[in-house]
């Protein structure tokens, strides 16, 4: 079942065309990578999927909702079904780590604060943070911890769909591999569908089921790693040099 469908997408800012007739499909239970040279519009595409950016024409369907024609109540429903991890975490700086994770639970559920605390501490250990980190503020923690905490927040409502924007960038190699393992574990445990923008070759090799190379405003190739490696283009040749 396709959770996300993008059809004939066109995006342009003023006179600059970012996407021109882009098509892709992301199925349930896949870890799907958006790859491409910098400035090709991967992040823009992801921002359009999560309704942060508007597109010029075409259609994007997420979990069956057509995004351009969505009503605000449905949009609100949709937003509770996904989690988004931003490149720099984007934790709310006025709240501590635990408050950040608890926020969606407090806003959207009627759970007692005792259960919310339990959920928060479970998510903390799931992403590999110590319980003692919970009371720290985003300004007091390292970049890696920041990302882990942001992932815990994105997972707070147990979403079906997870968007990750460069999850391993800025992490040390060990944390990055731990992150890969975590993503795989999450997928196996919760049948999560994960869409991520990444540049990390090891991570691409370890985690992705399918990927799309965006080049020249379109999808150059879509498929698993092997079929991408079998295609030749200047970007693919340089980017995957180590794997070829």
């Amino acid at each position: 079942m396709a959770l996300i469908e993008v059809k004939d997408l066109i995006t342009s800012f003023d006179s600059k065309v970012v996407h021109n007739g882009l098509n892709l499909e992301i199925n349930e239970g896949e870890i799907y990578g958006l790859l491409g040279p910098s400035g090709c519009g991967k992040s823009t595409l992801m921002r359009e999927m999560v309704m942060l950016e508007e597109y010029t024409s075409g259609s994007i369907k997420v979990l069956g909702y057509e995004i351009n024609a969505i009503r605000s109540k449905e949009a609100q429903k949709l937003r509770k079904k996904w989690g988004v991890l931003f490149q720099f975490g984007a934790l709310f700086t006025s709240l501590s780590v635990s408050e950040n994770i608890a926020l969606p639970l407090k806003e959207y559920t009627d759970l007692s604060s005792k259960i919310i605390d339990e959920i928060v501490s479970f998510k903390l250990s799931l992403v590999g943070l110590k319980q003692s980190d919970a009371h720290l503020y985003p300004s007091q923690i390292s970049g890696g911890m920041n990302k882990k905490a942001a992932l815990a927040r994105a997972l707070a409502l147990d979403p079906k769909l997870l968007f990750l924007d460069e999850p391993t960038s800025g992490l040390d190699p060990i944390s990055a591999r731990e992150f890969d393992d975590l993503i795989l574990k999450l997928k196996d445990m919760f049948n999560l569908t994960i869409v991520m923008v990444t540049h990390d070759l090891t991570s691409i090799n370890n985690t992705l089921d399918k990927m799309a190379i965006i080049d020249n405003k379109k999808i150059a190739v879509q498929g698993d790693l092997n079929s991408v490696l079998n295609t030749s283009s200047p970007f693919i040749d340089t980017f995957f040099k180590a794997l070829k």
Binding site: F88, F92, T93
Partner: peptide, 16 residues
């Protein structure tokens, strides 16, 4: 500053 640190984006995607 919230806009620069993407906190506003995070809020929007979480439905706040």
């Amino acid at each position: 500053v919230m806009k620069i640190t993407q906190e506003l984006d995070a809020m929007r995607t979480m439905g706040f």
